[in-house]
Design a protein around this nucleic acid. Structure first.
Lengths: 207, 207
DNA sequence: GTCTATAGAGCGATAGAC
DNA sequence: GTCTATCGCTCTATAGAC
């Protein structure tokens, strides 16, 4: 998702305030992430988002057309936000380093974690606007992790003979659960718990 | 919370239909579990519960006084529902058998799993009526599991030198995450994933 | 203990002035 | 692009008849 013509900062506004409209929309999406995270889709009102964004619910309707359309923009933004981190992390550094980077980063953004957790559970309903999105995300994540695990296995970093598809799902589920528990207690060291799990997969318990 | 005078079963109704009122309340709580599970606390209306229970929302107000009071009854019932299983399972059969029983049983009750997942996430908000309840439940669970793990360690069922407090939390988080993923795909074998995790803890990978 | 009626508030969405 | 006003709907909760 390219960044759209941005005529702020140093370039002069090339016509009128189209760029300002874009900036406004981004501010609103940012506020919407927080409020949707805290209250879920059905629990969130346009008025409450508008209040946090410093505008009116009519303005939201003007910019996005409907509550659901705004929510879809939130989902897109959320996906875009971690895809760079994800790609960079998984690239070639191994699953431990990747997990480390990802968990460290997540620890820094409560809104994102809460958004994930809230939507994951709410979107269990097949009629929820994020249901298909979420199903796809689960499937993609397991697939990505599984590929990494296979690579690690052939590199000898993890033990042979493990049921890798099961391990991949375990890792995904572990992260989901840890994030929820972390929302109750931010002192929980998510990175540690993930890394310790990966340690269990290593070849020689030669301690 | 003692069980209030119950004049059902063998004692004759000592006056009129007080016992019927109690049965009615139980039916309503049963319906409420399902609806709260599907829509969360804030997403659920008294009218929708009343509809499923075959009565009116005014009747709910009459029996429970408020939406929040009804919700508290739901939480109590949910806790009572698995405490028997929990005690029986954890008693002395070892953590693998306990996990097996618990995951098998959970697989049979979608409403309970969805209720857990929904409330766990929604109650992250400190103002949520189930926030303290949930925090307590997390803490109790980790403590219970940790005790079991210590027992297993001294019995030699699991490897020595593992960071048991971390393992206990991992197990709790794993189950939370698995239950959420299961809500998207009931073919997911939760029991298998938990048992495979416990296998990782065993002493000799002499396979 | 269940009914109808209603209060009082919040919701998503629309219309039209500026 | 933002404003006020409003529609039609749903919500929790209460009042009072039967």
């Amino acid at each position: 998702m390219p960044d759209a013509p941005r005529s702020t900062s140093n370039a002069k506004p090339d016509r009128a305030s189209y760029a300002n409209g874009e900036r406004r929309r981004q501010q609103i999406v940012e506020a919407a992430i927080e409020v949707f995270a805290e209250n879920g889709y059905s629990g969130t009102s346009l008025r409450s988002i508008a209040e946090r964004a410093g505008t009116s619910h009519v303005s939201l309707m003007h910019h996005f057309g409907s509550k659901e359309a705004l929510f879809q923009r939130v989902l897109e933004r959320r996906l875009a936000l971690d895809q760079d981190v994800r790609l960079a992390a998984f690239a070639e550094s191994g699953i431990e380093a990747a997990a480390s980077v990802m968990m460290k980063r997540n620890t820094r953004s409560r809104a994102l974690i809460q958004l994930d957790a809230t939507i994951q559970v709410e979107a269990v309903d097949p009629n929820h606007p994020a249901h298909d999105y979420m199903k796809q995300l689960f499937a993609d994540t397991v697939k990505e992790v599984l590929e990494q695990l296979h690579a690690e296995e052939s590199r000898g970093v993890i033990r042979e003979g493990l049921p890798l598809p099961v391990v991949a799902r375990q890792l995904g589920a572990l992260i989901i659960g840890l994030q929820i528990e972390w929302l109750y207690d931010e002192d929980l060291d998510m990175e540690l718990h993930v890394l310790e799990f990966l340690r269990l997969l290593r070849p020689a318990p030669s301690a």
